[in-house]
Design a protein around this nucleic acid. Structure first.
Lengths: 189, 189
DNA sequence: TTTGTGATTGACTATTTAGTCGGTTGCGCA
DNA sequence: TGCGCAACCGACTAAATAGTCAATCACAAA
């Protein structure tokens, strides 16, 4: 049985928050432990190195995101509907969890990131097959499906930034539609 | 007169290369000086802090890129032609200067980066006005022009990655056209 | 020749930080 | 009750690293 202890949980939460705010290199392990209210030693008991902690965090976060977004795509939807669902769910998720957004951005552009880590994610395969379906139906551009997945990610990312900038604006459902037009225009044949 | 000494130049070149390869935090200042064949002290004579060095490097690189790409856009071109020129010139540039590409990616996702730095670039204004022209002609989507500039950057970035993955492929001019279709689909009305 | 100024050196330090270690505590189970 | 093992502690260390500094050098102007 996999029981996650309170202290381990506290470490994970605190680490995520500190990393998102101050960056990997701006956050000493000692501070993570201190802020989490646990001893220094216990951190290294659960995570042999700082790098382990960071990678674990990333994998957990990505898992959460994929689980949340992919679960909303229903069978029988058109490809455009599926993409819209994925895109919108991602936006919701990042709006609710800004720390995850920050963390992810940082990680994916850091030396820790590799294509292996990306591919190892079981959920990525699901996203790929959605793209393949769309291509087979002749609706999406005929490109490497993994590239389309990455393209979607990049466009989600830009959408998040743009929506944040206009967050005061009340009429951002219009903006949302315009932003999805960008996504669809990019991917559709 | 702004004479750049040999040693300063050596520092800049070495630093760019090391940062691109090992990252900002994986590169001690001492190693930069050593590899550049100069003393430790001279580095801090020219760049008071490591952060100064990094920011200077970034600004120089961005300047080079903008100068190269924007200079190829000629007056009287259609907006589609202008975007194609910008996009293609960027690809060429990053292919020729992979270190710059690496450095830029890293910097723009690091704590050093801020919107101020972006906006302070005189050339960004030129890119913005190209987008505005396209919008006024009703050819581009009606969105914040700065957003369109960023979108283009993000798409260039993805294009570079995708072209690198298929670099062995001889027929990558087909791929190039397909990739530009993505760009145009995203930005055009 | 003198004098001032920027280039240059490299040994030195003060600090920070990841990771260790010897030992304690608490809990389930035989 | 006592065994075993994981959770847990926090003082400690060894290494790394950004930045300093006192001193020399090169050279141009006065």
């Amino acid at each position: 049985m996999k029981t996650i202890t309170k202290k381990k949980q506290a470490l994970i939460l605190t680490a995520k928050s500190l990393f998102a705010e101050k960056g990997f290199y701006g956050t000493p392990t000692a501070q993570i432990a201190r802020d989490a209210g646990v001893s220094n030693g216990i951190l290294f008991h659960y995570f042999p190195t700082k790098e382990d902690l960071i990678k674990t965090l990333y994998i957990d976060i990505k898992d959460d995101i994929f689980k949340y977004t992919l679960s909303q795509v229903y069978r029988g939807a058109t490809i455009k509907e599926s993409l819209y669902t994925l895109w919108l769910a991602s936006l919701e998720w990042y709006t609710e969890n800004p720390e995850d957004f920050q963390f992810m951005l940082q990680f994916e552009n850091s030396p820790y990131y590799s294509e292996d880590i990306e591919r190892s994610h079981r959920y990525v395969q699901m996203a790929i097959s959605i793209m393949e379906d769309g291509m087979n139906q002749g609706q999406l551009k005929a490109l490497d499906p993994l590239f389309l997945v990455r393209l979607l990610s990049a466009l989600v990312e830009r959408s998040v930034f743009e929506l944040n900038r206009n967050s005061t604006d009340s009429s951002n459902s219009t903006l949302q539609n315009q932003l999805f037009d960008v996504v669809w225009g990019a991917l559709a044949k």
